[in-house]
Design a protein around this nucleic acid. Structure first.
Length: 530
DNA sequence: CTGGGGAAGGGGCCC
DNA sequence: AGGGCCCCTTCCCCA
């Protein structure tokens, strides 16, 4: 047999010794197809043997439920079992797990024997946790991809633009992901490490589209989302050797599983495993949170605070959004907020918690971001970090509509840009005092300038000083020129003092008492600022 | 083209 | 757990 040609990854062969006439072409066959068929047949046979408990030489006990399997198959599929099942071991082997449910292990076992991973929003977190436990990188990656495709995580504007540039929306991509049906199939995307769990799976299976569960499609019209919703390859679940080694240590010593369980109980409150995640999803799915409810679109704790009664959270701006955006923008923002909310609701109790050992005896549990390699000590920090993946920006500036991931960033922005808190001359950088400086307004942007620089810029005589500025509704034409403003800003500019700003700000800004804006609890709906 | 400065973003950690 | 502070890095604009 000789290889005739390469067609991408497909090699065509023909039997050696036969003439290469055209009429013989039909005898050529696709070696890859045969390989795939053989692999499928072999896997199917193994699965049937497992179901009939034929030649099963390994018992796995998960919370009291016994699973029978083939040790060689487990050995080939899981880094954990590779550590556990030494070739020199006894004829039969057993393993016991209490850190994930029998259902979860059944899913993983099915995946091992079939290549099909039946993920749903309710099990993906625990499956990913268990896969991390069992060191099955490919399962982890597929869980990540599932979550990403479900929640459209990590959709950055650059990616959207890129995809749009590539093909006018790209067609397939995100829409394909949203509409595909069938079991969540495996692939070997970036699984290029030593864990070659499923590298032998067929291309057909590898290419099978991922799909989110229907109940995760909060907006079925999400298929209209930009093709940029195609998630980038989950390339960052790097299980560096140290971490995995430590996880193995956790697993092999039952006493060392305490941190994981403690982390469950800690983050879950009731120690009920994944119940908080499920509760979050169920809460979202029960309709208890009416999207039309003005209290709906903010994150959980914020939402709860609103229900207790609107509470001012600071002197800067509104939480969530302004109402100046077009409906489609508000809708997109609402969807993003909901998805972020759902992501937060499904924050795992185990996943991301890795063991870092100091002196081999002092485990420090950390929360690992499912979308990058970052780990943090606190769940709250992980939630904060996740905003850089979800794109959620719940803190809009009432003055310029710019949005921020954190209130402190909004505050800093507002004080710097809109309140001219910096006591330094914009022109000459000389230090100023509030009394010895003037505040220049360009749209909603404000800065301080010293009297000397004012004279140099426009001439002292032409400046309407504080006493001469009577009523900013007259929109005094001034002064220092208007450069490009931020979006939504007016092109007015004037010079005023801090005191005079107070009169104007009610028009230009949301609400301004003194030098501060008042935060209103508003949302992405069409509710007016109260 | 490059360097400086300002604004924004993000992490660690304390309260 | 959330808010806030501090610090550092990155990005962007402008001279």
């Amino acid at each position: 047999m000789e290889m005739v040609t390469d067609m991408g990854s497909t090699r065509l062969y023909r039997p050696s010794g036969e003439p290469g006439h055209h009429q013989q072409a039909q005898r050529w066959f696709n070696a890859a197809d045969i390989t795939v068929a053989h692999q499928r047949h072999l896997l199917k046979q193994l699965d049937q043997q497992r179901c009939q408990e034929l030649f099963c030489d390994c018992s796995v006990l998960v919370e009291g439920q016994l699973f029978r399997a083939h040790r060689n198959v487990l050995f080939a599929s899981s880094g954990y079992f590779r550590m556990l099942l030494s070739p020199q071991g006894s004829d039969t082997a057993s393993a016991t797990f209490d850190t994930f449910s029998p259902d979860t292990f059944a899913l993983i076992l099915d995946f091992i024997y079939s290549g099909q991973l039946d993920l749903s929003s309710h099990n993906v977190i625990e499956v990913m946790s268990a896969a991390s436990y069992l060191q099955m990188t490919s399962v982890i990656n597929h869980c990540k991809t599932f979550i990403k495709s479900s929640l459209e995580i990590s959709v950055k504007e650059e990616e959207e633009e890129l995809v749009v540039e590539r093909g006018g929306g790209g067609g397939g991509g995100g829409i394909h992901l949203m509409e595909a049906q069938g079991p969540f199939s495996c692939g070997d995307d970036d699984d290029d490490d030593d864990d070659d769990d499923d590298e032998n799976l067929s291309d057909q299976e590898v290419d099978r589209p991922h799909h989110p569960p229907p109940h995760l499609r909060l907006h079925p019209q999400g298929a209209q989302t930009p093709a940029g919703s195609v998630s980038p390859p989950p390339a960052l679940w790097t299980h560096d050797g140290a971490h995995l080694t430590k996880q193995v240590f956790l697993l092999k010593d039952p006493d060392q599983t305490a941190p994981s369980l403690a982390a469950r109980a800690d983050s879950g409150g009731d120690g009920d495993g994944l119940s908080p995640a499920h509760e979050g999803l169920e809460e979202a799915n029960t309709g208890a949170e009416d999207p039309l409810d003005p209290l709906f679109t903010v994150s959980g704790p914020e939402q709860r605070r609103r229900k207790r009664g609107a509470r001012r959270t600071g002197p800067y701006c509104t939480r969530s959004s302004t109402n100046n955006d077009p409906p489609e923008v508000q809708e997109a923002r609402s969807q993003k907020a909901e998805k972020a909310e759902e992501l937060y609701a499904t924050l795992p109790t185990i996943v991301g918690v890795i063991g870092q050992f100091h002196n081999d005896s002092n485990p420090t549990m950390r929360y690992k971001c499912p979308f990058c390699t970052h780990t943090v000590k606190r769940k709250a920090d992980l939630k904060r970090h996740l905003r850089c993946h979800t794109g959620e920006r719940p803190y809009p500036c009432q003055a310029c509509n710019k949005r921020f991931t954190r209130l402190e960033h909004l505050r800093s922005h507002f004080e710097t840009i809109h309140q001219a808190r910096k006591l330094v001359c914009k022109k000459c950088k000389c230090p100023l005092t509030e009394e010895a400086s003037h505040v220049v307004c360009e749209g909603t942007r404000r800065y301080r300038i010293c009297a000397t620089c004012i004279q140099e810029e426009v001439g002292f005589e032409s400046l309407p000083m504080e006493d001469s500025l009577e009523g900013l509704d007259q929109e005094p034409a001034l002064l220092l020129g208007v450069d490009g403003e931020e979006e939504g800003e007016t092109q007015r500019s004037w010079l005023t003092s801090m005191e005079q700003e107070q009169d104007e700000d009610e028009d230009n800004l949301a609400e301004d008492s003194g030098t501060d804006l008042i935060i209103h609890e508003v949302d992405d709906s069409d509710e007016e600022v109260q």
